[in-house]
Amino acid sequence: MSAAALLAATGPLDPAARSFLSPTGVEIVFLLVGIAVLGSAVVAVTTKQLVHAALWLVAALGGLAVEFLLLTAEFVAWVQVLIYLGSVVVLVLFGLMLTKAPIGRSPDADSKNRWVALVVALASAGTLVTLVVDAFRTSWIDLGAGGGSAAVTGASLFRTWVLPFEALSVLLLAALVGAIVLSRGAGRRVPAPRSGRIRAGRPVGSNGTVAQRAAAAPPAEAPETAPAEES
């Protein structure tokens, strides 16, 4: 995220083709959105409310999509929205809801690794910025409209990058099989009759199995086993 915002700084970094600091509207907007993205990204990693973090991530990724748009990478921008906002964030929110993200602060959201994480983040951001700055230096790339349209993307994909594209399908297949194997592994441990319980300790079991079990067994046991099976 921070890399994107730092990328934003490259807007006015190209004095060769244009006079230094002659920001057009697009560049101003690019910079402002970059700051917003950086801000929401920082909040996303620092907030102690899990779902808020995911939603700040929405803001950050949405802002990135706007940045892509401003760079005329139209197709990539909407891929960003469709894949990251429409499925990855939904996946994250879905996972958070499934695993009981509480309303309000989670005290255990404090990680001991935060300083390590900060160092890693800064290091990778530094690497990226150095790389980008060094790669492009002062070259002026004219962002003509349509440069990132689907047709252009398709042309370069299917003329130049066919092999990586096909390799990608193998990668996706591997991911698919992996997901299935993982989920099946989890599935085998789960006994057939399933039940949920609410935290007050009252079973809301399907078919009344848990209710019966809870009635038959000492109450301390039945509620303990249920969540272990679920996860």
């Binding site: 990855v88 879905f94 399908s169 007050a200 996860s231």
Partner: peptide, 26 residues
């Protein structure tokens, strides 16, 4: 309301989420 704002549900949904992300990328 009884208890808190949270109820358990099928974790099995989650496989669909994985499948969807993979297929959407495709």
């Amino acid at each position: 309301p009884v208890g808190e704002d949270w109820a358990h549900t099928q974790v099995r949904y989650y496989v669909y989420a994985f499948l969807y992300v993979i297929f959407a990328v495709d």
